[in-house]
Computed example of a mutant assay.
Amino acid sequence: MTQHQLSGRTDTELLWFQRRGFLQAAAAWTALGGPLAAQAQSRSNIVELRGDAMLNGERLTPAHTIQTGDTIATGPGSTVIFMLGNSAFHVRQNSMLTMERGASLLAVSVLRLLTGAVVSVWGKGNRRLIVTPTITAGIRGTGTYTEIFAEQNGRSYLCNCYGEVDVKAGDDQLISRSSYHQSFWGEVSPKGGHMLTAAGAFNHTDEELEYLARLAGQQTAWQIAGFKGVKDGKGYMEDKPGQMNPADMLGKSGT
């Protein structure tokens, strides 16, 4: 188990992949053929549901199928893990998000996080967006963790756990190329003259991403490489002198 830092979350929330219920559900999902079989058989794409959650204002059940265009809301102690197309999502408790439709029911164009947090592994495809009140991320294939901190007036957190992401907050924008957790704040008001600032890596684990990647038939960057870097939010496998989070370079050398 990798070390992880917490900010306003508990170990129980982060260790969902150790639950017997999830392991049984994931094994059954895989045995039934995974996401492609679910689409072909028109069966539910929900891998696990715990507690009370809502789908478009009605109570969500394991028999439902989540589609683009839907709004998902979870209550206290409630979580939902589901597949949509070639991507996997874990919506944490006390969260609300919408999955805006792209070219088809299975193609997400925008994941709009309104409250709470979501862990996601995205399969390769056309550019899609993750949008919060203070940050926008343009992605193709990657693993991400996104959270909105209501107690900080909606300040948003994004970790590009691996892959390439176009990140924007206010007038600040950059390209994030990460192999091991590159993290950012989307500020509510300028901090040091910038709306996009560097953050540490917290509130999510390597194992969460690995399990979601497995559901989607993928591997994380560190699984492919066979080793891990320093989980400091800078995003690199190897800790070399002078390496910085790209948000720390905004406004320098023409960035």
Rank of each mutant, 00 (worst) to 15 (best):
N160Q: 11
L196K: 02
T115V: 15
D52C: 13
S104F: 15
G200S: 09
Q24R: 15
G125A: 13
L174A: 13
T79N: 14
V119G: 01
F227C: 04
M54W: 11
G170W: 06
L6R: 11
K252W: 10
P35W: 02
N86P: 13
S44P: 05
G8P: 04
E207D: 13
R177H: 03
Q18G: 15
D172A: 09
R214K: 15
Q219H: 05
D248V: 06
G34F: 07
K240P: 07
T74E: 08
K234V: 05
Q93K: 13
L174W: 03
I72A: 02
N45L: 08
Q243H: 07
V119R: 01
R155N: 07
E238G: 01
A25G: 08
L15H: 10
G141N: 03
Q152L: 14
N160E: 05
P246L: 03
S7L: 15
A53K: 02
D171M: 12
K240Q: 12
T2G: 05
S7M: 14
T71G: 09
L129K: 03
V188L: 06
Q182M: 10
S120D: 05
L105S: 13
E164V: 07
F202Q: 01
E210F: 05
H64F: 13
L97A: 08
V118L: 05
R9N: 07
L60Y: 03
Q218S: 08
S120K: 02
P241R: 05
M244Y: 13
S109N: 11
A198L: 02
G21E: 14
N203F: 02
A73R: 04
G116L: 06
E147P: 02
L32I: 11
G233K: 00
T255K: 14
Q39H: 12
G57L: 13
T132G: 04
L84G: 06
E58R: 13
I130V: 11
G57Q: 12
K234H: 09
V165N: 00
F184I: 07
R92Q: 15
W29G: 01
T144Q: 03
Q5R: 10
N203K: 09
Q67A: 14
M249W: 11
N86Y: 12
S95W: 05
E208T: 08
K231A: 03
R177I: 00
S44G: 10
V165E: 00
S156K: 01
W222H: 04
T68K: 04
K228N: 06
G186W: 00
N153V: 15
Y157V: 06
A88Q: 04
K228A: 10
S189D: 14
E151W: 15
V167M: 04
T65A: 12
D248N: 08
